[in-house]
Amino acid sequence: MSPSRRPKSSPNVAVAWLAAFSVGMAVVALAAVGPVAVPEEPPRNPHVADAWTLPAGEPVFPADEEAMPLRRHCQLCHSSDYISTQPRLSRKAWEANVEKMRSKYGAPIPTNAVPAIVEYLVKNHGTP
């Protein structure tokens, strides 16, 4: 952005720059602070009039057998990217995570479904 290269002590350049860049900027504020790298005020939002509809669709776990328990149990309350963006975690941490979903958030996951879910998480997002 050109303002950053404006020589500090040249009033002519400063005036020219101001003229070129004054859209929406307070001249008084500029004079008070010397070189300003970017304007204070943001532009008006060009998207205010958008319709209030969320983009359709969401990422889902693959349709293979291995991921089936997660398709069934882990996409109810949130999309799969809550899980796919997580870092590698230890088996213990993944077990704790699934347990948190069940005990704190009431995820209706039968106990016998837990091992396959943890296996999948460890295999795909486990620490080595």
Binding site: A56, G57, E58, P59, P62, D64, S80, N124
Partner: peptide
Amino acid sequence: RPWDRRNFLRAGLIG
């Protein structure tokens, strides 16, 4: 990983 590329691509396309 299965969920990384495939699903994000899909998210991008649908979303």
